[in-house]
Amino acid sequence: MAVDFAQGYASSWRVERIDPRTWGPCGRLGGVETIEIDRDGTDDAPLLETASLTVSGAAMDAFEPGWFRITMEAVQGGSSEAVPIATVWLESESGRYDKGYREDTLRGLSVLHQAAADDAVLPDGSFVPKGADGASWCADLLAGHIDAPITAQGGFEMPRSYVFDLGSNVLEAVWQLLRAYGWCMQADGRGEVSILPLPTEPVIALDRTGAATMLPEVSYSDGTRSYTREYAPNVHPFSIVRGMMPERGLDGLYRVRTQKLTCTHGVTVQEEVAPL
C-alpha cells in the first residue's frame, strides 16, 4: 500500500551514487547531514534544479564528483515507499575542520547542466527547420549532451524555421524554442527529463483537507504567492496547483515557479506560484 503523503509518515534518507551508463545506483554516500533542493522554472534558471548538501565525517575522504540520487524512504503504518526526490551532479564546494571534525558542503547541479557547458555552444545561425518536430528536435539535441534519459511527451510541428539567439548553448536554445511554442521541461526525482506542453490541469489541490499539511503563512509579491507545504509527489516547476483557500489568498489555478525542498523529517516544500 502506497504512502499517503497527506498523512503523517516517518522518513529516512539515502544518497546513492548513480552509474551514468545505467542511470541506476552503484554506491552510497554516507555522512549526509542536510539536504536542500532548489527547483526553479523561471526564465533565467534553465538548469531547473540545484542542490546543497552537508556531509560530515570521513565520508568525504574518498569522495569523487559524480551523479547522485537523493531518495526518501517513507514509512507509514506497515507500508514503506522509496521516493526519489532529486538526481544531481555532486561536487565539493567547501569544507572545514573543527576540532578534528570534518564537515563539507556539496553543490548539486541538475542533469541539464551539461547542456550549458561552453563546449555546448551552438554555431551562430543554428536553427530548427520549418516542418520539423520541435519537441523531438529538442530531445535529440539534449540527448547528445547530457547523461540523463530524456523523453518528449508528444510533439509539435514547426510552423516556420526558428533561429536561435546568437551565442546560445544547447540548453538555452532548447528553452528558447520550448518557451516560444508553449512547452517546457521537467526533471523528476530520478533525474529523467521530460519535454512536454505546459501543463493545464492541476496535480494537487490546496484545500482545507490538505490545510493540515500547510503552514498558515502565505505571502504576496507582484502577484505571486509564497507558502510552505508538506511534500506531495509529481509537483514540479510548471505544474498547476489549484488553490481552494480564498481566506488565505489562494483561490484558483496557479503555476509553480520555484520550489525549495528541505529534507529533514519528511520534506518541507517552500513554493512560489503565479496565478494563470
Binding site: 534558471a45 538548469l47 551539461q114 561552453d118
Partner: peptide, 16 residues
Amino acid sequence: SMDAANALERVIDGKI
C-alpha cells in the same frame, strides 16, 4: 571538462 567547469562558475543559486 575545463570549459564545462568554467561554465559552472556561472551557476549561482540554480541560475546561470
